[in-house]
Nucleic acid binder design. Structure first.
Lengths: 204, 204
DNA sequence: ATTTTTGTTGACAATTTTGTTAAACAAATT
DNA sequence: AATTTGTTTAACAAAATTGTCAACAAAAAT
């Protein structure tokens, strides 16, 4: 008999994370999760009461694992440029592992809203982001960054980081690349993003 | 015979488009589609044989409706800057209507690949994109655009256009905005994107 | 060693979603 | 009016997915 390791719960969680966040299989069933975790499907109900609870747990875990590091970076004392560069790198790393986390969150919000006719998010205000946006504002007013709306800068930043990983399937076809070539492009993203949003002095 | 009505068929299609591409309800059932179209669910099977056929039809329609206009823009003789600006505007317009088209496509590819273990895309090579990328290359070599890899520029462009619409739900919470404020931001995107990717001469 | 607790399993029930059939219906042609 | 053709509907069947239960095994506690 397989030695019971108390690892089962974690095994299920990890497998589900991989399926939903890494592979993006939104429609995966509990059976698929159980099979790929190598456990009986009933165990999913034993450890989590229902599929919904499992998904909620996934989300909670992901948020913690996610925001931990980047929050620390955003709240640090680094100068703006270095901070941004670190943030990009950290974000990209996470995205390499969980490219479909954000679509999953979006889907969930949409679905809950449709069923319950109410917002599912207690909407904890993300302090780290707020702090970083204030810094953007300062930089803008100091003339170090072009533009006037910090939110637009943040949107630009998120867009440039996330989108290429999110739409890998489409881009490979659109840009006529193969897997390897696309990976190479992704590896160059950090530099590209920095050059695009925070170019080194053009007005020498 | 009564002239083939097309009304019901189109009604179903339009409703499904709205549900999947506009509202992003990936898990919508045929019952939901039928209800919101105000028709009997059986009619979905009458006009389309199965749910899968319906979804395939949706995709085909969307691709035609989508690529038609933007292809014309990308293949036109406009100078690069104007062409890009038009493309952004056109793209943004479509996205306002169908923000979740691309995630839907991605989902489909992922799902098909998982089930069939083979690529579902015949992969028509998108000539218009290829043409535009050549132009980017020319501009880069002429020194009109910074950077060396046209694919990266294209990725930047797509990212800045699509992402903010794709993740509206998340951004509203992240940037601490309401629906109206976010709409305002979206309306300013075209100018922001142009300023970011093709800034007017800073070195006057 | 026996009881208790915890984890695991298979069989089954309930629910949800999709697909099918036959019959009813409407409009236009015969 | 009757026939044909295309459309619509309700009732039903099938499949897929989720959830429950009782029995059983392993580990821990007594």
């Amino acid at each position: 008999m397989p030695v019971k390791d108390c690892q089962t719960e974690k095994l299920i969680l990890d497998t589900a994370m991989r399926i939903f966040f890494t592979e993006g299989r939104m429609h995966a069933t509990t059976q698929e999760i159980a099979d790929e975790a190598g456990v009986n499907r009933t165990l999913i109900h034993y450890y989590f009461r229902s599929k919904k609870v499992l998904l909620d747990t996934l989300l909670k875990n992901a948020r913690i694992e996610f925001s931990g590091n980047s929050d620390r970076i955003l709240l640090s004392n680094l100068p703006f440029r270095e901070k941004t560069e670190k943030f990009i790198g950290d974000f990209l790393n996470r995205l390499m592992k969980y490219p479909y986390l954000e679509p999953f969150i979006t889907m969930n919000i949409i679905q809950e809203r449709f069923k319950n006719k109410k917002l599912p998010i207690p909407a904890e205000p993300p302090a780290a982001i707020k702090h970083y946006i204030n810094e953007i504002d300062t930089e803008m007013k100091a003339g170090n960054i072009p533009g006037k709306d910090p939110a637009q800068f943040a949107l630009n930043l998120f867009s440039l980081i996330v989108y290429p990983l999110l739409t890998k399937q489409i881009q490979i076809r659109l840009l006529d690349l193969d897997d390897k070539a696309y990976q190479k492009i992704l590896n160059e993203r950090k530099k590209i993003i920095m050059d695009t949003l925070l170019p080194v002095n053009t007005n020498k």
